[in-house]
Amino acid sequence: MASKTIASLILSLISGCQALNTTGNNIHRHEAELPVLCAVFLTPDCPIANAMAPSLRRIGEFAQASNKKMLLIYPRQGLTSKEIEHHVKAYGLVGQPILDPEHRWVKALNARVTPEAFVFTQADDGVQVIYQGRVNDLFRGVGNRQEQARNHEFRDAIERVNSGDYMPRSGPAAVGCTIEP
């Protein structure tokens, strides 16, 4: 369980980061302060993240239908909002794109690679990180791709929250492209 300090940091990050809606305008803080947040770290040219885009689109739709905010966090320095919007549109991703060039999200969540998935929820005493790990097992390792994913841990974590299970569980480590310092 994350401490209150981290909880407030995460919430401040939401308003502190350059967050964009699909039209490129800054989002309002209250939009991001939903009880449950889902997040995935992405880079537009990571082949592992892109190969999972169809799954991520479905998870984004599922999260949206479940009234959960999905954050698409792009941690690379130098990326422009235009590049991100193009990526989101091309791959049909569903969620709120966020630029994180200073790695505030990366450091707060200890994200390592793209794609890496997170689910948080607010609790009375702060924010619980319910899930951190891989999106699914399409890749068992870098260079070790399966034809299709068989286990869908990210979606399972959202489903658990939907059913009222907020118990934190760490998933299998995410496989992907290293988030560069």
């Binding site: 040219d45 082949p47 892109n50 690379r76 320095q77 260079g143 492209c177 290293t178 560069e180």
Partner: peptide, 25 residues
């Protein structure tokens, strides 16, 4: 999936490329 035609292309992915080389991928 991405270009590696400029030194800058390597710099901004240096950790990732390094790990792939170390793993013989």
């Amino acid at each position: 999936p991405f270009e590696l035609t400029q030194v800058e292309d390597y710099r901004k992915r240096s950790s990732f490329i390094g790990s792939l080389i170390q793993e013989d991928r």
